[in-house]
Design a protein around this nucleic acid. Structure first.
Lengths: 152, 152
DNA sequence: ACGCAATAGTTGCAGTTGCAAGCGATTATA
DNA sequence: TATAATCGCTTGCAACTGCAACTATTGCGT
């Protein structure tokens, strides 16, 4: 008389997204391990360029993790010669984070591998379904973002 | 001449799911913090009952995390009096994990809070959209699960 | 029945993350 | 313009997780 929880409808959706995320994340880890990157490190590299750079805090905000996490993650990437910190010309408190040539090469390689894996896995849905899914997810994301704003 | 990555179509989908997961997870953490549970702990409690119990390894497999993680997570839950280990009658290597009355009460409270939050957030889509989304996600999950099996 | 591989679970260790406190720089306020 | 609040980032600390090694038990092949 106390089984695993009886799921509601919305709950089931949430559970689905959770499961899918776990599955995708697991796949991502396997792929990215080939270039020695964690999913979070990859996410950071994806957001960088070799020209203007980005501020650490901005990246942290996008990734919903605290500043210290970015600090240390960047320490690691910098130690591997993938990124470079430079002073922000407009604000002497801030740092701008740039991709090094080596970081750019590695990122491109990672993107190539990752995209292939993603392509294969998302190919489980046909194009029409992908399109549909995308519309729904975009709506959901927009709503959730607002919701987050509202709660801060 | 080296902007943040140029996204493919499938990649965009993947990114959407990732973003949504992060947003949902963030929301979950806030809610579950009220009952002092991490999302993973909550996931474990959700899978338990007060009668037959479940084996640690099975739970770990469902949650895609290694056994040692479950071991120590259960240590914590047990220290808080929420679960109880009992020997498995069929296999002397194994333990069966049960909810205690206190664990049951806390889980129900957590489910209540969590469901309300989920309901509110998934309510950002109307019922027809939710239905559509669910179908797509279920198909995707099934495919990804197979994919995972295949790679092991 | 015997030995050997596989399985359930635990433990040591190292790596990653969040939180809180701290430092310098900047912006707002009086 | 002086002072306070805020902001960008870093560091110390504690908590959580994965990996590899280990013990005890089970089951398979011969």
């Amino acid at each position: 008389m106390s089984p695993p929880v009886a799921p509601s409808i919305a709950h089931e959706q949430h559970r689905l997204i959770h499961d899918i995320y776990v599955l995708l994340d697991d796949g991502d880890r396997r792929v990215l391990q080939k270039v020695n990157l964690s999913p979070l490190e990859f996410s950071v590299l994806q957001r960088l360029d070799t020209a203007q750079g980005r501020r650490l805090t901005d990246i942290g905000a996008e990734l919903l993790c605290v500043k210290s996490t970015i600090t240390r993650l960047v320490d690691r990437l910098e130690a591997h010669g993938l990124v470079r910190r430079t002073p922000d010309p407009d604000d002497r408190r801030a740092q701008r984070l740039l991709l090094t040539p080596r970081g750019l090469a590695l990122r491109d390689e990672a993107v190539r591998l990752h995209d292939a894996a993603v392509e294969r896995r998302m190919g489980l849905l046909d194009p029409a379904e992908q399109q549909q899914l995308r519309i729904l997810l975009e709506k959901l994301r927009a709503g959730l973002s607002e919701d987050l704003e509202a709660s801060n």
